[in-house]
């Protein structure tokens, strides 16, 4: 791996974040305000106002964990899928490894996610959830999710420049997966004949792993997470291989577009 590419990814992610912060008055404060406001809305709607949203204990906490974990995945994949097209100018002028573009967006997004994640944990502590040694296992859960995100993002980023219509489909598929990831309800509450849909959904597993630690004070179920990690690695490899083999095809596809 060329060391220069890592420096480029870090610097471009930094540039993206700095630009984003410069566009508003309070700048970087938005990275804190955004998750706080989002969590605040869910707290108001489900915690104080509309009660009776199912039998789940600590429903607001349950919901917020799902939302924050999901948002990280969805925004990273959605943005990264268009990464090569977004950098048309560079693609047409430089012979550069294309995975740099989705990787940059994923890095910037991961930074913003970590802030939201810290706020989430703060809220959980404040609302009396247990702080146990199992929290030490969470960084590894995040590594699994990051790998899975990279995998999905790389494969989609590799395909979208050649099939631009895919970008429109991705938004809808993400919406569908949102409702199939057990964010609003316990998977166990679902009818038995649909359970398998949830059991093979990596996002369900990742959300459940976080809930196990944060709500139950238990160790996550590592075996399925190991499988998700494996799938993530295979997808990363496939995405990078695709981008390498299509390297000179992208420029022409973008030129004609």
């Amino acid at each position: 791996m060329k060391k220069n590419l890592w420096e480029l990814i870090w610097f471009r992610a930094y540039a993206d974040l700095k630009s984003e912060a410069s566009r508003t008055y309070v700048g970087i404060l938005w990275w804190i305000l955004d998750p706080v406001m989002q969590m605040g809305i869910f707290y108001l709607v489900f915690g104080v106002g509309l009660r009776g949203t199912g039998r789940t204990e600590n429903f607001v906490q349950f919901l917020l964990i799902g939302i924050i974990i999901w948002r990280w995945f969805a925004t990273s994949v959605n943005f990264s899928s268009g990464a090569i097209m977004q950098n048309r100018n560079l693609v047409l002028r430089l012979d550069i490894d294309k995975w740099v573009f989705p990787a940059t967006l994923i890095l910037g997004n991961a930074f913003k996610f970590l802030i939201a994640y810290a706020i989430l944990i703060g809220f959980l502590m404040f609302s009396g959830m247990p702080l146990t040694l199992h929290y030490l296992e969470l960084p590894l859960v995040l590594v699994v999710q990051l790998t899975f995100i990279c995998g999905m993002a790389f494969v989609l980023a590799a395909l979208v420049p050649l099939l631009p219509d895919l970008k429109n489909v991705i938004a809808h598929l993400l919406q569908l997966t949102f409702f199939l990831s057990g964010i609003f309800y316990e998977v166990d509450d679902m009818p038995e004949k649909f359970q398998w849909i949830f059991e093979i959904n990596p996002m369900v597993l990742l959300i459940q792993a976080n809930r196990a630690v944060m709500l139950e004070g238990q160790s996550p179920d590592w075996l399925p997470l190991a499988v998700v990690f494996g799938i993530g690695l295979v997808l990363v490899w496939a995405g990078v291989a695709l981008m390498r083999s299509l390297n000179v095809v992208y420029a022409k596809a973008l030129q004609a577009a």
Binding site: N4, E7, L8, F11, R12, A15, K18, S19, S22, R23, L90, L94, I96
Partner: peptide
């Protein structure tokens, strides 16, 4: 990148 300084953009150009 418009929001970066001249110095930062020079670094970016070199990395690219």
């Amino acid at each position: 990148v418009q929001h970066l300084s001249g110095r930062e953009n020079a670094i970016m150009a070199g990395l690219l």
